[in-house]
């Protein structure tokens, strides 16, 4: 019982630490581990990738708009706005991350 409470407490602390990141200013897109582009989050942009995933930036956040992968975890991750948030499309090996400089 004690161990379980400890585990949940650690999870709670980590959650607070990660959720209070500052608003991101840039985002990076990596395909197969190599950085493909690095753009400002404030600029509206639509990035169709060769592998089939489409990444859209609407000026405030960035997200996977659509993908041809079977599980769609990337699309379901939703909109990323804070620094440190990320989304990934495993089958297409695309990694999207919000950074700030």
């Amino acid at each position: 019982m004690i161990i379980l409470t400890l585990i949940l407490a650690i999870a709670g602390i980590l959650f607070v630490i990660f959720k209070n990141g500052s608003h991101g200013t840039l985002y990076e897109v990596s395909v197969n581990g190599k950085e493909v582009c690095r753009e400002s989050i404030y600029k509206k942009h639509r990035i169709p990738l060769e592998c089939g995933a489409v990444i859209v930036c609407d000026g405030e956040g960035v997200y996977f708009d659509s993908s041809d992968c079977p599980d769609l975890v990337c699309v379901n991750t939703g909109r990323l706005t804070r620094e440190g948030e990320w989304a990934a499309c495993l089958p297409n090996e695309v990694f999207l991350k919000v950074v700030s400089k």
């Binding site: 959650f15 990660f18 990596s30 948030e85």
Partner: peptide, 14 residues
């Protein structure tokens, strides 16, 4: 993918 930032998901997963 050499990205340590994935661990930000750990609280939810824990």
């Amino acid at each position: 993918w050499s990205t340590p930032s994935v661990f930000s998901l750990s609280p939810v997963l824990i």
